[in-house]
């Protein structure tokens, strides 16, 4: 005895296609569903370096006003920070700036460091 009931689209083929379309949404969205599974913790320090070598720690400009965490890996984060840093100091003609990023992936230790100078 068949247990099939009325269909949604009026045809079995149409129902299966619709079902597959919804299943494709489930599969397509799946990579965006994980939450709170990784974190890159970081802190930024900006230093102004005068032509005579005097170094002064300065406040971060708005372009570098990031939250102190990133939900993905440092490989995703660091290029964004570097790009923002270089654009924020691009117009400076006298001094240099140095940005230090202390960071750690899936740890609160901040035990890794990278430094850029610009312009």
């Amino acid at each position: 005895m068949s247990v099939s009931s009325s269909l949604i689209t009026g045809s079995r083929r149409g129902d299966i296609l619709l079902l597959l379309a919804f299943a494709a949404i489930i599969v397509g969205v799946a990579p965006w569903l994980p939450v709170y599974y990784s974190i890159t913790a970081f802190e930024l320090t900006l230093t102004r370096i005068e032509t005579d070598g005097v170094r002064t720690q300065v406040p971060l400009p708005p372009e570098l006003d990031f939250d102190s965490y990133w939900n993905r890996t440092p490989d995703d984060l660091l290029p964004r920070i570097e790009k923002s840093f270089r654009s924020s100091v691009a117009r400076e003609t006298v001094a240099h700036y140095e940005l230090t990023v202390d960071y750690s992936f899936n740890s609160a230790a901040l035990d890794q460091q990278i430094t850029w100078q610009a312009p």
Binding site: Y37, I39, A41, Y69, S107
Partner: peptide
């Protein structure tokens, strides 16, 4: 547990 430790202090 490292990720949870970092999240608890940062998020």
């Amino acid at each position: 547990g490292g990720a949870l430790a970092a999240m608890s202090t940062r998020l």
